[in-house]
Design a protein around this nucleic acid. Structure first.
Lengths: 190, 190
DNA sequence: GAATTCTGATTGACCGGTCAAACAATGAGG
DNA sequence: CCTCATTGTTTGACCGGTCAATCAGAATTC
């Protein structure tokens, strides 16, 4: 039983790596399988088709990010502190590997033609939004929705630009940017 | 001589349309040619290969955006007014068609594997940045660079989310968002 | 009739997906 | 212990289809 799981994880890991190398979804299942040390047929056996393999990989990324956020929030008390934790988690090192960023970008592309990808992406958006809103409410009142939307867009935009400049310190800079914008919004609300 | 130009423009227009329909670059030259009312071979004759056709289309989009900005700036006087014009131009209706947005998104994807796409994208980034910096300098002094980066990332992020929710009024909302963020930054600087 | 514009036909390579069968692990019956 | 059957795991070989790119030459223009 454990064999199947190990193979699935191996293939998912390989998928992210190969997407990082290619920068796009224009990759072959053979290449992924080779990186996973397995025959292409096995990938089809476990995942059905190429799209499902990619979606499984993306679900893995999403779950990982979600866990980071939950963990970060568990030890925070004040709304302000919780907001900062969310921002930090959003730019955690685990999300900063080439493959993960490239996968995100291509996830947006796929969301335009795949119903399932679209669904998953909306879940991510609404989770992020609701996390923000929950802790913004006590600080900015009914502007919480608006501010949450802005911060979410800013985070996505910063990631988008990261695709081009994979600098090591970019994570810290991005965090500062979002936190400064948050601070501006808090000032504006008072 | 005018024939070649007309065909090129027709093919570029068709390329943007087809990208909009598919949401990705995973499209065939045949499909583009058919939409342009021309044989696939002609597309190869004029553009050499598929990538060059797409890059030409993207150059067209970039040039069009640049013209919008220049026009908008020509009739603005104060720095504040100029900044607002840039933001408005960035969300001008011409950029709001499905195809253009999808092309932008896939442009980022291609920039990871195509040197030329990467180059073009950097040009766009540095132009936008320098436009912003020029008019931010008198308003926020040496924070101009930082603020310009933030606004640029925010614009890109808003576009990214537009891919998912092609609402008509999204343009107005996006403009308000960026202008509000700008206002916050101006307040913070004083 | 020369130059330009354009196409139909073709090709050669590649790739997603299938399938039948080999191989390994487990365990029940003797 | 040793069959032997059952189930899960894995692969090599293969196929149908697609598509970018080519090319020789037809149509059109000047």
């Amino acid at each position: 039983m454990g064999v199947e799981m190990r193979r699935r994880e191996e293939l998912i890991r390989a998928t992210i790596l190969v997407i990082g190398e290619a920068g796009s979804l224009d990759i072959t299942v053979s290449r992924i399988a080779k990186k996973a040390g397995v025959s292409p047929a096995l990938a089809f056996h476990y995942f059905g088709d190429k799209e499902r393999l990619f979606l499984a990989s993306m679900r893995h990324v999403l779950r990982s990010y979600h866990n980071d956020v939950v963990t970060a929030l568990s030890s925070a008390s004040t709304p302000r502190e919780r907001l900062e934790r969310i921002v930090h988690a959003s730019f955690a090192p685990a999300n900063f590997h080439r493959g993960v960023i490239a996968a995100w970008l291509n996830f947006y592309v796929l969301a335009q033609s795949s119903e399932e990808a679209h669904r998953l992406l909306r879940i991510y958006h609404s989770r992020l939004r609701s996390n923000f809103v929950h802790d913004l409410r006590p600080l900015v009142g009914d502007r919480a929705e608006t501010v949450a939307g802005r911060l979410g867009a800013l985070i996505d935009g910063l990631y988008l630009r990261l695709v081009l400049t994979p600098v090591e310190s970019a994570g810290e800079t991005a965090i500062e940017t979002v936190l400064a914008t948050l601070q501006n919004e808090l000032n504006a609300a008072s």
